[in-house]
Amino acid sequence: MGSFPCLHSLTEVLFFFFSSSDYFRLTTMSLRIIVVLAVLTGVTGSLSVTIRPVADSVDAAHPNSVPETVEETEFFGQAELLEEEEAEEDVMATGELNPNHYPAQRAAKVVQHYLNTRYGSPYRVFGLKRVHSGNAEDVADSRRKYQLEISVQEMIGNTTENCSAEVLFSRGEQQRSAQVQASCEALLKIDTKAQEEEFYQQYKMNQSLQSAQHLPDSYGHIEPDMKPLWHLGIVASSFIMLNESTENTLYNMAQVANVTQLPTENDQLKFDYHILLHEMVSQEIIHWKLLFTWSPAEGVKVLQMEQLPHCHDCEKSPNTN
C-alpha cells in the first residue's frame, strides 16, 4: 500500500481518504480512518476535536414554550397538539413572565374563556392571539395573581385588539374557579345583532328540531349552515373550561361530537351538546355533556354541565382550537 503522506489536520485525513479511490473502498473506510488517527496520535501526541452545540433560541428549546400566534395553532378545528417534552414542569415563576411559556399562556387562555362566557354568540367568538407581557405574584389567601397584556381576536370577523387582563387563581385542596377581569372595549363594540336575530328566528320557527354530529369532521370540515352551531358550542364549552382551568391546565375545544336542538322554552333556544375537550398538558380528550339555552337578549345560560365517563371506543379528534 505504501506509506501515508504527512497529514497535519483531520480535514486533510478525510480528504486523503476520499480522494484515494484507487486504494480504498467505502466499505473499509471507517477502519482505515481509525488506523490513521492512531498513527497521527503517536506522532503528534494527541488529537482532540471539540464539538460546540449550535446556538438556538431559549424559547424554542424550553419545555414550557408554546406557539405565539393563532396562526400557529389555528382556532377553528385545525390546531396542532401542543406536546410537552417533559413530564414535570418548572416551578411557577414569580415576577416578570416569558410571554411564550406555559404560565403566561395558560393564564391568558383563561381570559379567552372568560370573554366567550360573557360576550360570545353564534356570530362572535374570541380567541387568544398573542401574549405580549405577563407578571405573576402570590397574594393573600393562597392565591396567585397574573397581570397580562394580550391580543385577542374575534375569530369570525377577524378583528384583533389589545387587552389588559387580570387572572386570580386559587390554590389548595378546594380550588375555586379563576376570577378574571378584562378590558377589551373595542372588541365588545362589534355589532352582530342582525345575524344573531336571524339565527334565533330561524331556529325558533323550526318545525323539525335540528341535530348534527362531528363538528368538525375527521377532515376538519364543517358545512356552512352548521358553523353557527359549532361557534355556539365553543362559547358554551368556555363555561366548562373557565370552571375547570387552573395554573396546571390548558384547555381547548376539540369537537362537537353531537348537538340536538330541544323545544324552545320561555323564548330561549335550548340545546343538548356532547363536547370533546382537549387538555393539552395531560393530552387527554375529555367528554362533557352541556345543556344550555341561548337567545340574543340573554346569551348562553348553562343549565347542566356533566363530565362523562372515559369512552374507550370513541373516536378521538385530532383537531383542536
Rank of each mutant, 00 (worst) to 15 (best):
G172T: 06
V111M: 01
K204C: 09
Y219R: 15
Y200N: 08
I240A: 02
C314A: 09
A297G: 04
T293D: 04
S164I: 06
V70G: 09
D191Y: 00
P318W: 01
L37K: 01
E74K: 10
Y119P: 05
A140S: 15
E86A: 14
D313A: 10
Q283V: 03
H287L: 09
E185P: 07
S57F: 03
V58Y: 11
D138Q: 13
A38I: 08
L276R: 09
V39N: 12
N258M: 11
Q307C: 11
G157M: 12
L97P: 03
P296R: 07
T160K: 06
M305F: 04
H113V: 03
P263F: 06
E74T: 10
D272N: 09
D90L: 14
F199C: 07
A104R: 03
F4L: 11
A140L: 13
V70W: 05
T28L: 05
R25S: 13
V300G: 04
V110G: 02
Y102T: 07
V91S: 13
T159G: 03
G95P: 12
S208H: 13
T117S: 07
E86M: 13
L187S: 00
M1Q: 11
E137T: 11
N100W: 07
E12K: 08
L308D: 02
S245D: 08
M305V: 10
P99L: 00
K129V: 00
M29Q: 03
R176H: 15
Q179K: 12
G2Y: 12
Q207E: 06
L82Y: 00
E284F: 02
E166T: 10
E244K: 13
D138A: 14
A212W: 08
K129W: 06
F126V: 07
C314V: 04
R130V: 09
E173I: 03
S46I: 08
A38E: 15
N135M: 15
M305H: 05
S177R: 13
F169A: 06
S121I: 07
S57T: 02
H221E: 12
K129E: 14
G42H: 14
V180T: 02
H132R: 14
T249I: 07
E306L: 15
L37S: 04
S282P: 03
I285F: 10
E279M: 00
D138N: 14
L115P: 11
G2W: 10
P216E: 03
P216D: 06
S57C: 02
S30L: 11
K289M: 09
Q195V: 03
M305C: 08
P216Q: 04
V66E: 00
P296F: 06
L37M: 09
V66H: 00
F271A: 03
S19L: 02
S142T: 13
A61R: 13
S133Y: 10
T264P: 04
S211G: 11
V91F: 09
P309M: 04
T28V: 12
P309G: 03
Y146T: 01
A87Y: 12
Y273V: 01
A186M: 14
Q268Y: 06
